[in-house]
């Protein structure tokens, strides 16, 4: 059996679905951040696959930029998390950050 591009793209799409479900299901802020990383990786995998399929370098450049963006995003997100935890050090868990309360 030959491995076709569609296989890679399906893995990417499933990874994206799992990440999106994780963001909606989990309530621990750190785990939600990790799920967002999963989604970005799914996009990256699709970009690289399309780049080979199209024989075009744009997809790889995109992944390059996304890596930078993701690193900056994580740094800022974790800074906010640390600030929240420092503000109420007493017995706080990530559950206290009531997200998605509408």
């Amino acid at each position: 059996m030959r491995v076709t591009d569609t296989w890679y793209l399906v893995v990417g799409a499933l990874l994206f679905s799992v990440g999106a479900a994780g963001v909606l299901l989990r309530r621990n802020v750190l785990v939600i951040l990790m799920c967002i990383e999963l989604m970005l990786n799914a996009a990256n995998l699709s970009f690289v696959t399309f780049a080979r399929r199209l024989d075009d370098v744009t997809g790889q450049v995109a992944v390059f930029f996304v890596l930078v963006v993701a690193a900056a995003e994580v740094a800022v997100g974790l800074a906010i998390v640390v600030a929240i935890f420092r503000q109420r050090r007493r017995g706080a868990t990530a559950d206290d950050v009531s997200l998605l309360r509408g």
Binding site: L15, G19, V31, M34, L38
Partner: peptide, 8 residues
């Protein structure tokens, strides 16, 4: 995919 499920 196993790792992704593990994360969530």
């Amino acid at each position: 995919l196993g790792g992704a499920l593990g994360v969530i």
